[in-house]
Simulated assay, not measured.
Amino acid sequence: MLFNYTRSPVVLCKDSDLRCKILEALELAKKVVCKREKRPNLNYKCGMREKARNGATKFSLFKYLNKFENEFHLDQEWLQKLYRLSTLDPKDSRYKFHQILPNYTKDIKITLNDARGLRADLKLFLHCCWASKFLLLPVYYSDIPRIKNGRSGRSVEYAKDAYPEIFKIIRAPFFSELECDVDISRFMAESSMKNLGGMPTGMFELAQLGRLRISPTSYWKNLQTTQFRELQGLLTGI
Rank of each mutant, 00 (worst) to 15 (best):
L2R: 11
F3V: 06
N4A: 02
Y5C: 04
R7P: 07
V11R: 14
V11I: 05
C13H: 01
K14N: 13
L18V: 02
L18P: 00
K21H: 00
K21M: 00
I22N: 03
I22F: 00
L23Y: 13
L23F: 09
L26A: 08
K30Q: 05
R36W: 06
N41W: 00
N43I: 02
Y44M: 10
R49A: 10
N54W: 05
S60V: 10
Q76V: 07
L79V: 12
Y83L: 04
S86V: 11
T87V: 00
T87R: 10
L88K: 06
L88Y: 12
D92W: 11
R94K: 14
Y95A: 08
K96E: 14
L101C: 00
P102G: 13
N103A: 08
N103G: 05
T105V: 12
D107I: 04
T111M: 02
N113H: 09
N113M: 12
G117L: 03
D121T: 14
D121S: 12
D121C: 02
L124M: 13
H127Q: 07
K133P: 01
K133A: 02
L136M: 10
L137Q: 00
P138K: 10
Y140F: 12
Y140A: 12
Y141L: 05
S142Y: 14
S142P: 09
R146C: 06
I147V: 08
I147C: 03
N149C: 01
N149W: 01
G150C: 07
S152D: 08
E157K: 01
Y158V: 01
F167Q: 07
F167G: 08
K168P: 03
R171F: 04
A172E: 07
F175S: 11
S176H: 14
E179G: 13
D181T: 07
R186W: 11
R186A: 15
A189H: 10
E190Y: 11
K194H: 15
N195K: 15
L196A: 05
G198W: 06
M199K: 05
M199F: 13
T201Q: 10
A207H: 03
Q208D: 03
Q208Y: 03
G210F: 06
G210C: 11
R211Y: 08
R211D: 13
L212H: 01
R213Y: 03
I214Y: 06
S218M: 09
Y219T: 04
W220E: 04
W220H: 10
N222T: 13
T225L: 09
T226C: 09
F228S: 12
Q232P: 08
G233I: 07
G233S: 14
G233M: 10
T236K: 12
